[in-house]
Design a protein around this nucleic acid. Structure first.
Lengths: 230, 230
DNA sequence: CAGTATCCGATGCGATACTG
DNA sequence: CAGTATCGCATCGGATACTG
């Protein structure tokens, strides 16, 4: 038996949602993921066949819809109204997890790709510098055995920002050497960037003004607190 | 691999919660279930070994705590503060499920025991009759193959109410013959009781005043809407 | 790239039996 | 009653290969 055999709406919801990977896939869609490869970047340890399966079953359940892309191959996935209404639940899970799940980061939870993906989603558009600034981040402390780029570029020019694993065609203004765990702690709001610099886990080279401004590039519109990745 | 390998708090929360049966077990604890057998009544199709497993792992995760019962054997389970803070999430799932999951009830979702358990949890204390009233419910349309009592008693006397599968030592004032699907639809707020009576799916014998009052015995304190089972 | 198809192994989970 | 122990199967899901 695959369902729960209960009329209770909680049970019916859980039949759709409380499966392995499914809430994370919904999280990716809520975060704006639209293409297969884009979704895959958010759940790198999920096998692509399972990802395809889940996309199908979520479509059958009415959580998402998809349409073939105009230019040739692939489909575009997006949430239905029902799926969009899962937002408070997924956000609630994130807030609950942030508050209650153990704070220490295990080595196998660190993932530079996920970190940079999430940073790229949370630029504070109107607080970005008016003139283009490019930062290069070099990671240390990457977990062994997980394929990952060591070096990333963050390029911002109000009101747009971009994170990418390949060098942009602009000069680098700010160089950051970061222990992955330390930058992740910063990103999770568990530590300030300044604290990472103080302990030596993070090193920043560049104009003082840029060093100070870097952490302010990310966040929620107008809010002073760092946007957490959920 | 059992976890998700992500630092994201949504992922951390889902490692604990997005497992088969787990959200329903939390629902039972949120509803006030404290004893093993009581919890089991709320998830009758979950095997007891798995129930025991989940209780242990939820305790390790800090969702619930347990203590040996004073009088001999067994333990009492209850939510920790972390577990209690899952309430909005589980309620959110229920509301979402009520709104978005298909409305028709499959035969294998009908369960008289679950229905009566839930009704017994939602008496509208202050709207109950001042003098004791006993109703007997005889179900028809029970799904085959699922062990279930056909007959139940509902006994109320302000501000207390009780549902039980054995006759109380009071006379029956109100007799109800109910198709299980019809009463479940009523309970889910998908149809009025009067509608069930009109279609013949529900028959009530007793003083007119009691017939009319019966649906008002259940609900949330002071609210006019029926309390849904989540 | 954007999936689909196939295969196979781990483990999740249910059934049953056992215990104080 | 309130669990624990054991077993065995099914299905979930990951790996790999294949396709337009």
């Amino acid at each position: 038996m695959t369902g729960y055999g209960q009329f209770c709406p909680v049970a019916k919801a859980c039949e759709i949602l409380a499966e392995r990977w499914t809430p994370l896939l919904v999280r990716e869609l809520l975060a704006g993921g639209r293409r297969f490869s884009e979704l895959q970047r958010g759940v790198p340890l999920m096998s692509k066949s399972l990802l395809a399966d889940r996309l199908k079953s979520l479509e059958r359940s009415g959580i998402l819809k998809s349409a073939p892309l105009a230019n040739g191959r692939g489909r575009e996935y997006s949430l239905t109204e029902a799926g969009e209404e899962l937002r408070p639940i997924v956000e609630g899970l994130g807030q609950w997890g942030w508050k209650w799940v153990k704070r220490s980061l295990a080595a196998d939870e660190l993932d530079a790709g996920l970190l940079m993906l999430d940073m790229g989603r949370h630029f504070a558009g109107d607080r970005l510098p008016a003139k283009r600034v490019v930062a290069r981040i070099d990671f240390s402390g990457l977990p062994r055995g997980r394929v990952a780029r060591r070096t990333w570029w963050v390029s911002v020019e109000r009101p747009e920002g971009e994170v990418c694993p390949d060098p942009p065609s602009f000069d680098v203004d700010l160089e950051i050497d970061a222990d992955l765990a330390a930058l992740t702690r910063f990103w999770l709001g568990r530590a300030t960037l300044a604290n990472g610099v103080r302990t030596g886990a993070i090193k920043m080279r560049g104009p003082r003004a840029l060093v100070d401004a870097f952490p302010t590039w990310f966040g929620v519109d107008g809010a002073s607190t760092l946007r957490r990745p959920w």
